[in-house]
Amino acid sequence: MQDILQSLGLAFNLMWRLDPNLVAIATLSLKVSGGAVLLAAVLALPFGAWLALARFPGRDAVIAVLNGMMGLPPVVVGLLVYLLLSRAGPLGPLGLLFTPAAMSIAQAILIFPIIAALARQVIEDAWDEYREQLLSLNATRWQCAEALLWDMRFSLSTSVLAGFGRAVAEVGAVMIVGGNIDGVTRVMTTAIALETSKGDLPLALALGLVLIFLVVCINFAAQAVKSYARRRHG
């Protein structure tokens, strides 16, 4: 107990002083996961909207697989991306392995199903309400999808933030494809894992607290966006 309290005290001290090491690691985490969310959202939102409006044989199976992939194990995704990006892999010549870009790609793959599946659900529910009106206006499928994506923007921002929360908190994928290189690919989760095994509990705890703080902030932001939207737009 004494150890924990002492470590907590040091952790708060690190945060209070804005310890450069701590700040650098947290900043890289945000950059990597921010990039991952951007990449994933750009692909997953249109895909989710398309899946919501499309009717084709096997659609139910696609939805089931997509929903199932929301729980992809990060280490497996890390392994697959590792194989793709390693020297001998098909994307080896890009030289991305052990770079922040590789970490963003791995996280993007991890959260693509989350954003796409949630978006599909949101858009499909909305489609029930909007379908006749939009079809009456002679909107094409693509125009419908576009209009629904924009109309559901506040609900969808929650799905995107859910993706961000998952990305920033996962450790397995970034550990494998990033390599946890000090100052280059060390992010909060991999640093916590390393510092804990080294016994540097204050830094690990400080990073852990920052991580929790971030995730809570994200949820507050999601809540705020929603209630603002409800008041402003009905």
Binding site: Y130, E132, D151
Partner: peptide, 8 residues
């Protein structure tokens, strides 16, 4: 329609 559907 009976219930107007408006975009946000």
């Amino acid at each position: 329609f009976q219930r107007p559907v408006m975009l946000r």
